[in-house]
Amino acid sequence: MSIAEPADIAATHPGQDTPLIEMRDISIAFGGIKAVDGASVDLMPGEVVGLLGHNGAGKSTLIKILSGAYKADAGTIRVNGEEVTVSSPRDAKRHGIETIYQTLALADNVDAAANIFLGRELLTGWGTLDDATMEAETRKVMSRLNPHFRRFKEPVKALSGGQRQSVAIARAIYFNARVLIMDEPTAALGPAETKQVAELTLQLKKQGIGIFLISHDLHDVFDLADRVTVMKNGKVVGTARTADVTQDEVLGMIISGKCPPAAVAGPGALRS
């Protein structure tokens, strides 16, 4: 029984049409552990949805299904109302879904440009790698995130945690994503860079890009997200507009699974 039926979406988004992304009743198990259990989330164009929950709640696993890293055991994914199968990262990228992974997923031994263009290299007319153009583009996109960044020639292994994170973010935003998944994108960033990412998020939102934001910083999430979806033990506790709930209520959802009245309860909600 899914709780968030299309009717509920209409309730939470009055006046808007088809969602950019709809994930319905997604389940996946790793050898008996139900990492995600019948979870449903959706995302509108130009909307930021915060995904919250304990460590191990299943947030990363859920979004990895959307980004093509895992294949769900059950459930459907719709992009712009059309049902799609996302069976590889390539599929996801074809649908305009870009991901900043919690682990960053960088090849440590090659430089920033090689990482940003990995799998989508720019080629010269001869079919060889166009490193010069890739480096030039990398300089452009990195200057939006981290204007002081200079170490373009070095393997990303030699970069600081925050610089590496900037590279991972640059890779996700460079290719004109329609949907951006950010799994704890600012965990390693300093305050200035975090602010830069926050500004960038709002800027991208204005361009109509939908963003899933996973973060443990409730404060950040309330600043940026239009809605939050809380997960617990692989199940969705509930979804609420940030304008309708307080941080304490959301904290209650995360810790005890108790759904406040302003939220749409999911299958993981504590029954009272």
Binding site: S67, A69, S88, P89, R90, K93, T99, Y101, T103, L104, A105, L106, A107, D108, N109, V110, A114, N115, L118, G119, R120, E121, L123, G127, T128, L129, P155
Partner: peptide, 25 residues
């Protein structure tokens, strides 16, 4: 190894096989 995609992928796989796969290689 240095000028073609193939070589770039070989090195990326060596650096982080999971990352290469998630990048669509």
């Amino acid at each position: 190894a240095n000028r073609l995609r193939f070589g770039r992928y070989v090195f990326a796989i060596g650096g982080n096989p999971e990352a290469a796969q998630l990048s669509g290689v």
